[in-house]
Amino acid sequence: MPIEIPKDKWPGKIRTVTLGATAAEGGTRSKTVAIGGEASLPFMHFENPTPNPPLVAIEIKDRKPEDWSPLLAEVWSEAMNDPGAWAKAAEATGADLILLALSVTGADGKPNTPDAAVAATKAVLGATGLPLLVYGPGQVELDNELLVPVAEATRGERLVLGICEDKNYRTIVATAMANGHLVTARAPMDVNLSKQLNILISDMGMPADRILMDPTTGALGYGIEYGYSVMERLRLAALQGDAMTQGPMIVTPGFEAWKTKESKVGEGVPESWGDWKERAINWETVTAVALIETGATIVVLRHPESVKRVHRAIEELMAV
């Protein structure tokens, strides 16, 4: 009995966004990468081709973080003391992008400074040819204070600057617009809030193809289902033609997963959790893959083994 496969026809598609700029384009990256462009739900190759695979970014810091899991400290070891070296090591594991997260304080315990932030950014740009994302420490005033000079010092690189939130987006958007960068717009796990922030940023005159959406997610076991459904709904809205939800989505499963006790620590936890390292990698990988299958375009990870496994999953998922 011949069956007609039900195919969805959508009026909208995900916007194509290009990260990074080569010398010819006014930057210094060895290549640029494009994301987005899908006209179907993730990996429904029987409906439409998937023009660009999802990408894996590795998160590094401008100085050795004190609160990261020993498993991460072990695997990155010495490189953590030097953002340039760390970026190089990250590139060597096969990452597609580097995300540099600026710290609240310097190694001396004093507040981070614009000069230090610019220096760290430049070190990373010098060490790798991959496109770069730079995020502030997540405190309104400090974010603005650090990101503006970073944006100015890297004019034309098409970095992604973050994070814009509904109460603090103007300064970052303005400097990204003035210096040819992109921004990440993060809203707390709500379809409407994600969309609203996109509208606010667009209203400032930022071109839509320079906005990434971070709908926020929880880790496996810590609210992943909310982020999962919000992303599914955003993807559906985008396909239905809602222009303000069509930005590619970036999420941070590495940050979320490594914050959980399951990944972070190996002692004083139930035996039924099994082998620490394998469990931690599974935690990060499962979180990332579940989100990729709901529509994440960039996943930011922390452990090289997860990067490898997620890459392998993406490869399989991209097979037609």
Binding site: L220, G221, E262, W273, G274, W276, E278, R279, N282, V286
Partner: peptide, 8 residues
């Protein structure tokens, strides 16, 4: 394996 089934 516990470390496989727990996350799943």
């Amino acid at each position: 394996a516990a470390e496989l089934f727990y996350p799943l």
